[in-house]
Nucleic acid binder design. Structure first.
Lengths: 224, 224
DNA sequence: AACTTGACGATTGTCGACAATTGACAGTTT
DNA sequence: AAACTGTCAATTGTCGACAATCGTCAAGTT
């Protein structure tokens, strides 16, 4: 074992993608905004090539859209799109839970309980982004507990889109404390390794989130 | 309404991505094979830029892997990876069926029945690829019938990986006729709009495919 | 006045070249 | 002989430039 740790040599594409992603999910870049390559390359102090590749990467993640000869734009989210995303998440996460009941290790469950604790800890944080981050981390851990790597990848893709959409709305959880509490039935069912109970707990939990998000989107669409 | 139809101006990236994809899913490019940009650009008669972008596109689809400073390689599939993929597909497609029971239009169902007919028609085809293609088309239509656009996208991503993996094995269905027949219970349940029956039909159908594929991969891994 | 045409600026599509890094091989030292 | 070091070919990372295309807007025509 070496005394030294590796030095990071992250390439430009990764760095640029990260920065654009951050700008989108934090709402600094609003949906529909055009991302011209020249402008971005000026901002980053690079040439257009890495910017293009980073943008294509984000396109595959569903954060930006691409039209030939028109370039990249920050993805716009509609109510039906958010409904679709959450609906898919239900199918995904219910199955992750089903698998986790059989496969979750004690370490997995311990990690989930610890994460549940973090939900309560951050409940008084004013930062919505932090709360969302911790909430997503909990659900991601459930996917990890499913023992299915592809499941995690699929969840990450969805989470990115959900995060961008939620940030767009600006608010979601009226009561963070209560939000944390609604994870308890999920935790209980998993600890009991009761597949059916976990299924229902998850279905309810995500459906509530779906309805809240979709309603907010529908309102904002009516208003606009 | 114009007399003329649009002329295609597909850009190089799309064309290149298509060709590489075809080469991978048909097995002409074997897993692990390195894709050097210069070589590819020579083959396609273009510069490296479009090749890089096409390769990154395929990476996001899971067909090729990318390592910094090492470039692109055709993705290698292992037994556990294929198990994960099929497992996720189960969660996905079961939920698609659940939604389709409520949302499928008569046109959706008619399209599915027509596609079922094509399964029988192509059952005597020697080309495995054609059979796989038609089979996948059937299941894709189920996702379409779910009325969830995001579901279709997720399925397409999975299908691409499944197709590449299956082609790698070279064979899958011993009896194409029987393969076609096993779709009947799915069709019946959907026509009856019986959610629970459809769920079980799909679960069984996909689980059989999963077991077959995983077994083939495990054998080939033992052999190698 | 409404429509068509033409030109212009902005932006993307693609290219060829150079710099940086990697992996392998040979040469050298102990 | 083993290990280390230096060199070199191969490949990727990045760049700047040119050509092609699109949207816009003004000018011209009916």
């Amino acid at each position: 074992m070496s005394v030294f740790s590796e030095v990071s040599t992250t390439d430009l594409v990764t760095q640029i993608a990260r920065q654009i992603t951050a700008a989108i999910v934090t709402g600094q870049l609003k949906p529909g905004a055009r991302l011209t390559e020249l402008q971005l390359s000026r901002d980053f102090g690079t040439s257009r090539a890495p910017v293009r590749e980073a943008a294509r990467l984000l396109e595959s993640q569903g954060l930006v859209t691409f039209s030939p000869r028109r370039g990249f734009s920050v993805r716009t989210f509609g109510a039906t799109e958010m409904r679709d995303i959450y609906e898919l998440r239900i199918g995904l996460e219910l199955h992750a839970g089903y698998l986790a009941v059989e496969r979750a290790t004690e370490a997995d469950i311990a990690a989930l309980e610890k994460q549940l604790g973090r939900l309560y800890e951050t409940a008084d944080q004013t930062s919505i982004e932090t709360q969302i981050f911790e909430d997503f981390a909990f659900h991601r851990m459930l996917c990890v507990a499913s023992g299915n790597a592809r499941m995690i990848k699929a969840y990450d893709e969805l989470a990115m889109e959900m995060r961008a959409g939620i940030t767009l709305i600006g608010k979601l959880y009226d009561d963070p404390q209560r939000m944390a509490e609604t994870h308890e039935p999920i935790m209980d069912a998993l600890k009991k390794r009761d597949a059916e109970e976990l299924r229902e707990a998850l279905r309810y939990h995500i459906a509530v989130a779906r309805d809240a998000v979709v309603a907010l989107f529908e309102d904002s669409e009516k208003g606009a």
